[in-house]
């Protein structure tokens, strides 16, 4: 059913989504915690920056990232100076792009989950002898688990369908940076609707299944208020 090249694109897409989601959870959790707890005046500014990818056209984001990561961009120069290569048109470049592109989809559910946990359980844990780190992992994270699940799913599903950013900074190098959505575009351009159908259907199925699982699991969790 799958053409070997399409299988490669599918594998690459899943890998990109998995790596990006993992990076997003690691980076997004402290950011979400800070956004949920801080009373500093810069919070709305940071919040707006995090939400920006929601409204910004992906091509705009991709364009700036290309300038930033490319050989003449600040990070590109830094990489070259350090003996490496610029990150544009590499898998790492794709991960960076996806992380920024999907940031709000991961940070916002976790931030909201942390906010709804509130200060009270954390204070109770503190008076019971739990250090800040201890109470973060033993109280805040388990109470926010629903937010984490939603965040991971949305981050993964959103990265799966990424198009504009990838096209700008990843190009369309088969086996290296060609992801599913771009492969679909190529097939449609070439009027190869059969291969486009298979890939589009696969993407639809994966995304739908993921969201369904989340909805079922979240619903069944006891003791967690929405």
């Amino acid at each position: 059913m799958f053409h070997p090249d399409d299988l490669t694109a599918l594998g690459l897409t899943l890998k990109l989504a998995a790596v990006s989601t993992a990076v997003l959870l690691v980076l997004g959790t402290p950011l979400a915690w800070w956004l949920a707890m801080t009373r500093r005046r810069v919070r709305p500014l940071v919040d707006a920056l995090v939400s920006l990818p929601l409204v910004l056209p992906p091509t705009v984001l991709g364009f700036y990232l290309l300038l930033f990561l490319g050989p003449d961009g600040p990070l590109g120069r830094l990489m070259t100076a350090a003996g490496g290569r610029p990150l544009a048109f590499t898998f790492t470049g794709l991960v960076i792009g996806s992380v920024i592109y999907s940031l709000p989809f991961v940070v916002q559910p976790i931030r909201d989950a942390f906010s709804s946990v509130g200060h009270r359980p954390m204070e109770a844990a503190a008076t019971l002898g739990a250090s800040p780190r201890d109470r973060f992992f033993s109280v805040a994270v388990p109470l926010a688990r629903r937010g984490f699940l939603t965040a991971a799913t949305l981050g993964f599903a959103h990265t799966l369908g990424e198009f504009g950013v990838v096209l700008m900074i990843g190009g369309n190098i088969p086996g290296k940076t060609q992801v599913l959505s771009i492969a679909i575009y190529d097939h449609v351009e070439a009027l190869d609707y059969a291969r486009a159908h298979v890939l589009a259907g696969t993407l639809l199925l994966i995304s739908f299944t993921l969201l369904l699982i989340v909805n079922l699991v979240v619903r069944r969790q006891p003791g967690v208020r929405t």
């Binding site: 359980p121 204070e123 109770a124 503190a126 008076t127 002898g129 739990a130 109280v139 003791g223």
Partner: peptide, 20 residues
Amino acid sequence: LPPHRRRAGYVFQDGALFPH
């Protein structure tokens, strides 16, 4: 001394039990 290093048992008005 931060709260977790004071040995003060605190009973909150609503109990503040951990729902998880």
